[in-house]
């Protein structure tokens, strides 16, 4: 099964809204996962699991952490990470993972 970028965004929005019990209208690309949507660490795991299940992916947590901190210096602050970790960033991450798994429609 392969996905278009629009399908990935809308699936991801549904997943996040359902996991965090928020209205889908709040799950916009610029929303910060922690400070705008109030996600906690168990929610990040939950969302990871749902993405893996939905898209048939295996996300490597170390890879994910490294990509999130990329370019933010040796010791990124919690604020730096929070600002980077938006819905839009997550969708890009999933697209890249799906591309690597050859599951994105060109």
């Amino acid at each position: 099964m392969s996905y278009t970028n629009e399908e990935i965004l809308s699936k991801f929005q549904e997943i996040v809204a359902d996991a965090l019990s928020v209205d889908i209208s709040e799950v916009v690309p610029e929303a910060r996962v922690f400070s705008d949507l109030a996600a906690e660490s168990i929610d990040i795991l939950d969302i990871q699991f749902r993405i893996e299940d939905e898209f048939g992916l295996k996300i490597n947590r170390d890879d994910f952490g490294e990509r999130l901190a990329e370019g933010l210096g040796e010791e990124p602050t919690a604020q730096d990470i929070d600002a980077r970790f938006t819905i839009g960033w997550c969708v890009d991450f999933i697209c890249e993972e799906l591309q690597a798994a050859e599951k994105v429609e060109e």
Binding site: A19, L20, S21, E40, I42, D43, L45, D46
Partner: peptide, 8 residues
């Protein structure tokens, strides 16, 4: 939250 209960 419901998802935290369910996952646990």
């Amino acid at each position: 939250r419901p998802n935290q209960w369910d996952l646990t």
